[in-house]
Nucleic acid binder design. Structure first.
Lengths: 132, 132
DNA sequence: GCTTACACCTGTCGA
DNA sequence: CTCGACAGGTGTAAG
């Protein structure tokens, strides 16, 4: 099994309150139904839970400008307690030797400083106070 | 006499059962009484009958979002037998050379295919089976 | 049944 | 070229 990094997004205030803008290049990893501007996919988080996201693109104009619709994205933001300066990372898992996509995974991360003074990104589910 | 196209609206299911959302830009052609969020106007159909419509806008928020109230719009829908995929077109008739509005006209239309295979929009009053 | 809140869609601008 | 930000427009459903 091969894990392919799709993109990392540092969250801005607009991403917390509205839709998540999706990098255009990442569209390659999401096969759209013919003639459709919208698709659903599942992504598994650090605890093994699957989240269903709705990925939508513009139908007109030169740029697709994909987004995860707020209706599917915001529950994730809320449950993970995400805020500006946090980040999300999306991966695709493939079997070696063929192009079949096994599944997508998503990580919600926060930057913390170690005792050595180095910055490290940690899955929010693994933070000491998570869920309190 | 000059006929000015105000707008064409392709009818969705919500327009059949509820109010008709009115394009914001069309508000320019409908002078509202000072301080009012509502006005009545008459529009003449393809048979020469006049219909009285009540045009209402929001009083708060950034967008006026005008609608023809169901109470004035629905009788028109019923009498013309309108359904989703039909359309309505509103016009304003002005005298050349001045800004006086002579009257408004409205057309209820359905798309039909000709023997040549072309789509044409026809006033529903002119359809072969109208009124049966 | 009118009014409004909300989400989604699109055009545009600018970094 | 991409993407964040914003304004404006619309349908849907709740108030």
């Amino acid at each position: 099994m091969e894990q392919v990094h799709l993109f990392t997004k540092n969250l801005k205030p607009s991403h917390i309150s509205h839709a998540l803008s999706f990098p255009t290049h990442a569209l390659e990893a999401f096969p759209f139904p013919e003639g459709s501007h919208m698709m659903n996919f599942e992504a598994v988080d650090a605890t093994g839970n699957a989240w269903r996201f709705c990925l939508s693109t513009r139908r007109t104009g030169a740029h697709p400008k994909p987004v995860l619709l707020r209706s599917s994205w915001h529950p994730f933001v809320e449950q993970k307690g995400l805020a500006p300066e946090d980040r999300v990372v999306f991966f695709m898992e493939r079997d070696e030797g063929n192009d079949m996509i096994r599944r997508y995974t998503v990580r919600a991360q926060r930057k913390v400083m170690t005792l050595m003074g180095q910055d490290v990104w940690v899955d929010v589910e693994h933070l000491p106070l998570y869920g309190l």
